[in-house]
Amino acid sequence: MTLAVRDISISLDGQKIVKGASLAVSSGELVALIGPNGAGKSTLLKALAGLLPYREGAQNVPVSASTTSIRKAARLRAWLGQDAVIHWPVTVERLVALGRLPHLDAFQAAPHADREAIHQALSRTGCLHLADRPATHLSAGERARVLLARALATGAPFLLADEPVAALDPAHAFHMMDLLAEEAKAGCGVLVVLHDLNLAARYADRLVLMHEGQIIAEGAADHVLDDHNLARSYGIRVARGPHWLVPVGRSEP
């Protein structure tokens, strides 16, 4: 199964954010979407999640956010937004249960299958012990895992995560990436926006580099993260080792 957009453009408030980008994620692969701030990564991710209308192809055919049933689309892909706000101090278990909303009818209480999915999501993310805690009173690491559990509870074949490790220390970031890699291994198509190039190189099966609304490189880490691409997109020079790279300064314009 593949989730894909082809040659799409997105304008927000009259500004063109994505300019003819194509992106596909297949079941079982972990794809990292990288690029400097403002490159259009989050916007492209939202389009894939069906949250934004976009235009497609050379003819600029408009595609509304919900071409199919909005509920059906929600079962196909789980979206984990950047710094999501939790508005009420509901328990962690109730929060994770929100992931089952696409499966529920309006008048239906959570049946057995939902309980199982919620339990699974909590246990896979190591959050079982948090189940009865208020979701607003968690550390950043716990919070990130709980929000991931919420997304996993949907049981969607595709997971789209926007900077899930942004607020995490290295150990928690590794933990989060391990969890995403496990999901991919289990058959989920995972697309994740990352700022940490080392994490992207280490975990992703494929890297997609975005710059000024366009995808300028795609493929294995060695190829995508070469000096030329990094200078062009991020405007940086890097020092390299066998499995790492460190930015050492801005590249000359």
Partner: peptide, 17 residues
């Protein structure tokens, strides 16, 4: 309203209009 606990965009991603 339950979906909105996580904000409007997440609610939308959960199939809420």
């Amino acid at each position: 309203l339950r979906g909105l606990v996580l904000g409007e965009e997440t609610a939308q991603s959960l199939g809420i209009n």
